[in-house]
């Protein structure tokens, strides 16, 4: 597979290591009253879609960027990749406490 790195262009997937669902970006507040309830789904519950999936890849053999890659799990088509930090920033700007923006 080839991953379109937002800074470096198309890079071979072998340069990356894979983490999984990008919902890991939305870490709950550990000091909140209901932390025990919010951390359980954060740590354990994942969607497993047959289709579009936003997921975290680490450019370990490259510039060490964490990327959010949108991939079709059925066809392996990759629709885009962004720096994870940019996704977090956008998410915080528009966040209503819901899903990943």
């Amino acid at each position: 597979m080839l991953i379109p790195h937002p800074l470096l262009g198309l890079r071979d997937a072998q340069e990356f290591s894979y983490l999984g669902d990008a919902s890991l970006l939305l870490r709950p507040d550990g000091m909140a009253e209901n932390a025990a309830e919010t951390f359980f789904p954060y740590v354990y519950l994942r969607e497993n879609p047959a289709g579009l999936h936003r997921e975290l890849w680490f450019h370990e053999q490259g510039d060490r960027s964490w990327l959010v890659v949108t991939r079709n799990t059925v066809t392996h088509e990759i629709l885009g990749a962004e720096l994870a930090g940019d996704v977090v920033a956008r998410n915080r700007a528009s966040r209503d406490g819901g899903d990943l923006a």
């Binding site: 870490r27 680490f58 964490w66 994870a84 930090g85 977090v88």
Partner: peptide, 16 residues
């Protein structure tokens, strides 16, 4: 390797 990867994850993804 994995701790460094995790530290970068924390830096870039959790607390940029």
């Amino acid at each position: 390797g994995t701790v460094y990867r995790h530290m970068e994850f924390a830096r870039q993804c959790l607390w940029p």
